[in-house]
Structures are given as C-alpha cells and as structure tokens.
Design a protein around this nucleic acid. Structure first.
Length: 500
RNA sequence: GCGCUCGUAGUAUAGUGGUAGAAUCUCAGGUUCCCAACCUGAGGACCCGGGUUCAAUUCCCGGUGGGCGCACCA
C-alpha cells in the first residue's frame, strides 16, 4: 500500500492505531459529538495529565475535584442559564432553526433587541411580517435552545451537567480560603469532564458534547494583580501576541514581544494576567509544540464571554482546521464570586492584605485548557511521512510506548529469551516497554513509528556474545550498541532531556 | 437545525436486484534477518429501521453518522 503524505492518511492512522475512535457508540451508528480514546490515545492523555500535575505543583497549585452535576441555582448564579439558553425560531414548514435575537437584529437594525421578552420578540415578528429566510412561510413561536444538558436528580430537582469545570471550583471558595490559610493568590486547578449540547458538533474531537477541561484558577487581590511578585521572574519571556487591534487591521501575524513590554505598551493590562499568559505558554511548550505553531489571539470586545474582562486564546496551527484554540486565558474579575456570594447569601469578602484591613472579594484569573484539543493538535503536528514511512514525532515523554523490544529473529530460542528478559527488566523499572516478535524487523520498527515510540531495542546474535543490544532512534533511524545492563539508565537519561 | 453528498472487513476501496472481489491488515506455520521481503494456511465487511420485490448491500422512504456550504460555536 502506498502511503501518501496527506490528511487522510493521518485520519485513518488515529483510528487504526487506537488513538481516537468514534463517534461512540460505533456499533449503534454513533451519537454525534461523543468520542472514545483507544489504548494509545488515553496513554497520551494520561501522560499529559501527569506532566501538567507535576509542573503545577512546582508552580504552587493545588488540585480539587467536584461533581459534574450541579443544581439549577448554581447556573443561575454563574450566568450560564441566562447565556447558554438561546431563543430560537423554528419554521413549522421546513424546520429551519434561527437564533431569534440575531434574526431580529438583522431584519430590524434600528430596533433595540437586547433585553426584550420572548413575547415582545414574537410581537415584533408578527408586526413586521418577518418570514422564514429559507421558505418564506410565517414564523411565530419562540422556543428555547439549551446549550446545557438538563437532567433531574432525586425527587425532581432540576440540575444541569456542568458546561465548564471552572464554576464548580469557585463554589469551593470559602473552603479554599481556609485550606490555603488565606495566602493569596490561591492557585488551584481542576481536571474533569464538561458537557455542552452543541447544535451540530463537527471537527471531530475539537467540538465534542462531552469533553475534558483542565482549568487553573488564581484567586487574587486587586492590588496584587497589578503588583505581582512572580511576574518579575518571567517578564523577560517573549510571547507571540496577536491583540485585537492587530486583528482589526486584518493582520494575522502576532507580535513577538516580552511580557514586560506588553504591559508597558498596554497590550496586557495586569502583570498577574501576563503571568497567566506565560503559564499557558509554558505548559504548552513542554508538550513539544514548536514556536511557529503557537500564538495568542485576543478576543474582540464582542467575542468575549459574559464573565470576561479580557480574554486571549492560545491557538495552535493545524493543517485540517487552521488555528485551533487549545487554551483560553480569562480575566473573570470578581464576577463569579460576587454572583455566588449573592445567590448563596455568603459573604465572600476577605481581608487579603494585612496592612490595609480592607475587605474585598477576590478577583479570578483563569487558564482553561482543553486536553482533547491538545491531543488532536499534538498528534496532527507530530504526524509526518518521510519516504513512505509514517513517523509520529511525539515528545518522547508523551508517547504511548517509551520503548519497544524486539528479538531480531523468532526462531532462535536464546535470542527470544534474552529479548523477553530485557523487556521484563524495563517493565520492572516502570518504563513503558512493548514486546513484539511478529513479522520482519523492519515491519516492527514501522509499527512503532506509527505510535510515536521514540526508541526500539533489538536483541541480535551479537547480544548473545557480548551482552550488548542495539538502540534505534525513531527520528534518525540510527542505531547504537549499548551495554544491556545500562539500558534502563540510558533511557531514563534520554527522556529527561525532553522534560526541561 | 437546513441544503447537497456519501456510508462495503481494523484501514483505504471494487462491484452487484440473486449476500461480495482484490489490496493492506490480523492470526497460525515455515524461511530469512536491521528498516513494510517471501511462501503456506486461516480470519474478517455491505450503518439502522420500514417499504417495493419471488429475492434488497443495491431501488424508494425515514432515521443515524461523516464531509462540504449556510446557521450555530457563551
């Protein structure tokens, strides 16, 4: 079979090799927007998660985990109930669905639409004789389209599956305040599933109805945001920033400037927010993305979410879908805590600075990653076809298998035995080793290339005599002979080179 | 959600009103050995439901899933 260097080859690879399958459940035809990870895919996800967890601990973060279902009041307070339910008009004849508010604004540009009741909107439609844009039959009743998945709990208590993890973290605020002994900023993250009832999910795992979020939160004082100690440790780092003024000038070339400069020029307002930009960048870089495929894009004022004062997306360039957001950095101000304080009758004002004695509600800065999107963009960026060889150039620390062990031939007892011994020894050192004796040696190398396995070890006739093996490098295909006893040590050494 | 279009082994496909043919793949055996070699044998598929028909994977209708366009993407 001729292997072509195109996106179709990539798309079949991620199925063939067990990275991502779906829509699930496949045997029943699938439900749009739901996908499963195969053994190779989940291995990558787990490795990303443990890398993130390890790094974040070093940055002073703690982790929490909350329920994925929360009662209605939570989403009333968070603003999601209001913002995630869209008024829509359905044509009774052709079933076309249009957003009622947008439709009205387009047809009646001079009319104030914001804030109108459904009844008022229905009247506007009637009075202006507005008709279905497709089939021109009359429109009348407004329905609600709910982007949140609704369910009921126990004795008919209305609840919703969370559309983001962040809100559930905020609900722990008074607990965290105590737990962290009021040492601000409080740095906390949560990893878990979130759900959105997308009207028409597309683009594979980039827009799923059940997806992972990995969200970092900083609870921080207003003064602290402007005078943030840790900013000074990272301010010299240059970051590719595409602010919305540049976008307004139809530019898609980000400015590579230091965070210090960005603050000085007013591209970024707050040093603590700049620190969050850095943190997002840092975590992305250690996954192995190259600088050329990363940029930060600022939201235009009308693109921002209801809670955001400033918002930048960390985007990664892909072949199939263009620039893809893998992380959003949001300045949520005190919006969330203020609302949850009001709705729950809690006082979330705290004294954050012992000098001032002034009580305030903390501000929140958020760094929200979408691990599924990370995995997709990582795989697509790693995919290469070189001379008919598929090579998945994954960061060695993220590859499903760290190493594969092969006996050169399978009809020589002692070569097989020694290969198995090497494999078991690697497993004993808790190195992800994969043993394979089936097919020619070349075929086995190719199988591992498709999985991104950075190293292959082959035991040959020479191994029997002098206790050496060959270590083959995925990208260069070069082989080196090394002492059999030093194998685990050498591999660990090679891996550590990619972590910093 | 609307319109167009498509849905055949794990993957990518050929084809047909009388249930499918290669390739690759997987497994077993043989042979050789350092980059998808070869030989032998085996395995595996017509998205789901209904209709028309003696007979449907094929035609029709509905559903569902994918692609594209529109809409949507706080």
């Amino acid at each position: 079979m001729k292997i072509e260097d195109n996106i179709e080859t990539f798309n079949s690879l991620i199925r063939r090799r067990g990275f991502i399958w779906g829509p699930s459940p496949e045997i029943y035809g699938g439900l749009a927007g739901f996908y499963s990870y195969g053994p190779a895919g989940i291995e990558i996800k787990n490795k990303i998660l443990s890398l993130f967890r390890r790094e974040l601990r070093a940055f002073g973060f703690v982790e929490v985990e909350c329920p994925t279902i929360m009662p209605e009041i939570v989403w009333k307070a968070s603003g999601h109930l209001e913002r995630f339910i869209d008024p829509v008009l359905r044509c009774e004849k052709c079933n076309t669905l249009v957003r009622a508010d947008k439709f009205l604004q387009e047809n009646l540009p001079d009319q104030m639409i914001d804030g109108l009741s459904y009844e008022q909107m229905e009247n506007l439609i009637k009075n202006n004789n507005l008709v279905c844009p497709k089939c021109e039959s009359p429109l009348n009743k407004i329905e609600e389209y709910n982007l949140m998945l609704k369910t009921s709990v126990g004795n008919n208590v209305t609840a919703y599956l969370r559309p983001e993890t962040a809100t559930t973290t905020y609900l722990l605020f008074n607990r965290l305040d105590q737990d962290a002994r009021r040492q601000y900023p409080i740095k906390v993250f949560q990893y878990g599933k979130a759900y959105r009832n997308e009207i028409s999910p597309r683009q594979q795992v980039l827009r799923m109805r059940a997806f992972d979020q990995f969200e970092l939160q900083l609870f921080i004082g207003k003064d602290q945001e402007m005078d943030f100690e840790e900013f000074h440790e990272i301010k010299k780092n240059k970051i590719p920033l595409l602010d919305w003024k540049l976008q307004d000038k139809k530019s898609d070339k980000p400015n590579l400037i230091s965070l210090e400069e960005a603050i000085k020029k007013g591209v970024l307002k707050k040093p603590a927010y700049a620190y969050c930009i850095y943190l997002g960048f840092y975590l992305t870089k250690i996954l192995g993305f190259s600088n050329e495929v990363i940029r930060f894009r600022q939201h235009s004022p009308n693109e921002k979410a209801h809670y955001a004062d400033d918002a930048w997306d960390l985007e990664v360039k892909t072949q199939q879908f263009g620039w893809v957001e893998i992380c959003g950095i949001h300045d949520r101000t005190d919006y969330d805590l203020k609302r949850h304080g009001e709705f729950s009758n809690q006082n979330f004002e705290v004294i954050m600075n012992s000098d001032s004695q002034i009580k305030e509600i903390p501000q929140i800065l958020e760094i929200a990653f979408g691990p599924d999107r990370i995995i997709y963009t990582l795989l697509e960026n790693a995919f290469e076809v070189e001379d008919g060889r598929i090579n998945l150039k994954l960061n060695p620390n993220l590859a499903p298998n760290t190493v594969a062990v092969f006996p050169l031939v399978k009809n020589k007892e002692n070569i097989m035995a020694l290969a198995l011994k090497v494999h078991k020894n690697l497993l004993m050192h808790r190195i992800s080793s994969f043993y394979d004796a089936a097919g020619s040696i070349g075929r086995r190398y190719r199988r591992q290339d498709e999985l991104g396995t950075p190293f292959c070890i082959t035991i040959d006739y020479e191994s029997l005599e002098d206790n050496t093996i060959t270590l083959r490098d995925r990208d260069t295909m070069q082989q080196t002979r090394i002492d059999i006893l030093k194998v685990p040590e050498i591999l660990i050494g090679k891996l550590s080179k990619f972590t910093s």
